[in-house]
Design a protein around this nucleic acid. Structure first.
Ligand SMILES: [Mn+2]
Ligand SMILES: [Mn+2]
Ligand SMILES: [Zn+2]
Ligand SMILES: [Zn+2]
Lengths: 137, 137
DNA sequence: TTTGTTCGTGCAACCAAGTTGCAAACTTAT
DNA sequence: ATAAGTTTGCAACTTGGTTGCACGAACAAA
């Protein structure tokens, strides 16, 4: 299990330090996405800057992706195993206006859209807002 | 012309104060979207809080809509005349990674997507990132 | 093994955007 | 004229994000 985490880091060319193993473990346990401030609270005593840089490293190496859900803080989630973060790899995200959680809708790819002349496409951020199944009960 | 601006406010049930007329005028002149900090700079001496509340009022009354383009500051733009800000009224936005401007692609409606069971839909924020025609020259 | 270099971490300081409380100014209704 | 409600200006504050710097661990060359 912990082996799994370590090898995941190595497979993305990230040196598996103690800190990084801990952060990746927390990320793996999430059912929804997590923000830097939320991540901070998951640890007794951890430095914001270190966590910040850890997330950046993870993102640069495509271990995680970030989502701007309009809540004021950027959220993060593990990438799918085969994800290269190309536009065609991207999926839709769902932000619940009640519980404020953001979910990866991994099965729903971001629709391809036809841009006007001379616009080039690099990436897409698509966030659907509404109420999640849990909050609708 | 100035009449036009005043009537636009009235038509949205917003009392046309001096400040609001000025802000709406600036908004009307924009070719791309504008953020609160940018709006602030358009005035010699204007108060952040007042502008902030003005934008909020405008948004609540559906005179403008806001876009979270992931740049760190929320952008604003005038709504189309007939816009009710319902999901079917929404359009895609384009964020240029070079000039950092965000454009309303008013002709490109946000694609309808099929949400998983028990997710309700209230709104969508779709931002395409790339390079704009001006920056590609 | 010793030395020098790179890399990761912790701490503090900082910045920018957004937000709020409060009192003064202004508007509208009585 | 007076009272009540609305808008504005100012200052203070919160939060998320970011950076500089120094220390220590890891690593590689000598
Ligand atoms: Mn995701
Ligand atoms: Mn728009
Ligand atoms: Zn929810
Ligand atoms: Zn551009």
């Amino acid at each position: 299990m912990n082996e799994n985490i370590e090898s995941k880091l190595k497979s993305k060319n990230i040196k598996p330090t103690a800190m990084r193993l801990l952060v990746l473990k927390v990320l793996s346990e999430q059912k929804s996405t997590i923000s830097l401030p939320e991540l901070e609270k998951k640890f007794e005593k951890a430095d914001k800057a270190t966590l910040y840089r850890t997330l950046k490293t993870f993102e640069e190496n495509k271990l995680i992706h970030s989502i701007d859900d309009g809540s004021g803080s950027v959220k993060y989630a593990l990438c799918q195993d085969d994800c290269k973060c190309y536009p065609e790899d991207l999926h839709v995200h769902f932000f619940c206006v009640k519980c404020k959680k953001t979910y990866c809708l991994n099965d729903i790819p971001v629709p391809v859209i036809d841009l006007p002349m001379n616009f080039s496409l690099e990436s897409v951020n698509m966030v659907v807002k509404g109420v999640c199944p849990i909050c609708r009960l």
